[in-house]
């Protein structure tokens, strides 16, 4: 059997490649949810938004032959779903966690319902940028194939972190999330801030879905997301409500997910189920190691999950 020239080094390289390929939807969903949660609202329904985004992007790309329009439409669909969630949660006595779960079911179901005609056809995909042109090793070149959405996701994470810290608008979002009374006293319309923050969060998740169906794995089917949106929402807590940490968490999660196929491809084949669970074990272990009862909720918006 011909050994790969990289030998065991192919595993970390594959994990880097996996991080770049797989993490984008996690980045978009978690950064979007980060904004939403900083305004004091939880949207657990982003899994459904992700799937709706994937379906509508694929449908539009198929119909118009223009995948970037698909991305735009996915963002629009996500925006609407986010606004719907915000609108319902704004009613008195309505619980946002439960509504999120309900909307997740609704959006997933609707995507499957409307998406039946798109399972078979092949839609044009978003292209890749070759960042590995300098290398002669094909693995490196393959690993460094990235999509513009990945770049956009990274930029958004940093931009959001900066905006939350340094702009008037960021201050208003944080105020709405930290303390309703103070916000009201300042004349901030908490409802409107949350509506906007939740809608934008939804739009981000929609784009994440478009990445799934139009770039990687790059086709529409019903098993496409299988919980990635839900996991991304959980990563926000893991990242303690910081957009840049959301980015790192997503990359780490993507890299860990590439471990199982990478190990199998160099011949380490036993216990692949256990290796597939690596991202979850790693996340849990990191949380256990870094949390403590005193500072676990440091960074948590004060109004988050407040029972109404």
């Amino acid at each position: 059997m011909a050994e790969s020239p990289l030998g065991i080094w192919s595993v970390p390289l594959a994990m880097l490649a996996g991080a770049i390929r797989v993490s984008t939807p996690f980045i978009f969903v978690s950064v979007g949810e980060c904004l939403t949660e900083r305004s004091g609202r939880i949207n657990l329904g982003l899994e459904g938004t992700l799937v709706m985004g994937a379906m509508s992007a694929y449908g539009v790309a198929l119909g118009t032959e223009w995948p970037w329009l698909g991305v735009l439409v996915a963002a629009g669909v996500g925006l609407l779903l986010g606004a719907l969630h915000a609108g319902i949660c704004q009613l008195p006595r309505v619980n946002d966690i439960a509504t999120g779960i309900g909307l997740m079911l609704f959006a997933t179901g609707l995507a499957f319902f409307l998406g039946k005609p798109f399972i078979q056809p092949k839609a044009p995909n978003l292209g890749a940028i070759e960042l590995g042109w300098w290398s002669s090793i094909p693995q490196v070149r393959q690993a460094l194939q990235v999509n513009w959405l990945f770049v956009l996701g990274i930029a958004l994470a940093f931009a959001l972190a900066w905006a939350l810290r340094n702009t008037r608008w960021g201050l208003i979002v944080r105020l709405a999330g930290e303390n309703i009374d103070a916000a009201l006293a300042m004349g901030v319309s908490v409802g409107r801030v949350r509506l906007i923050a939740t809608s934008i969060g939804g739009a981000f998740a929609g784009i994440g879905g478009a990445f799934l169906s139009l770039y990687y794995p790059g086709s529409w089917n019903e098993g496409l997301s299988s919980g990635q949106g839900l996991m991304a929402v959980a990563l926000v807590i893991f990242a303690r409500w910081d957009p840049v940490r959301c980015l790192w968490a997503s990359l780490l999660f993507g890299a860990a997910g590439a471990l199982s196929p990478a190990l199998q491809s160099i011949g380490v084949t036993q216990g692949y189920y256990l290796f597939s669970a690596a991202p979850y074990v790693l996340t849990l272990a990191l949380m256990v190691a870094t949390c403590s009862p005193e500072r676990s909720l440091r960074g948590a918006p004060g109004e988050l999950g407040a029972v109404k």
């Binding site: 797989v22 393959q142 299988s226 196929p261």
Partner: peptide, 15 residues
């Protein structure tokens, strides 16, 4: 789907 794509890509990386 995502794992199938990942599996295909890691094999391509192995030649």
């Amino acid at each position: 789907p995502v794992k199938e794509a990942e599996a295909t890509n890691s094999m391509i990386a192995q030649g």
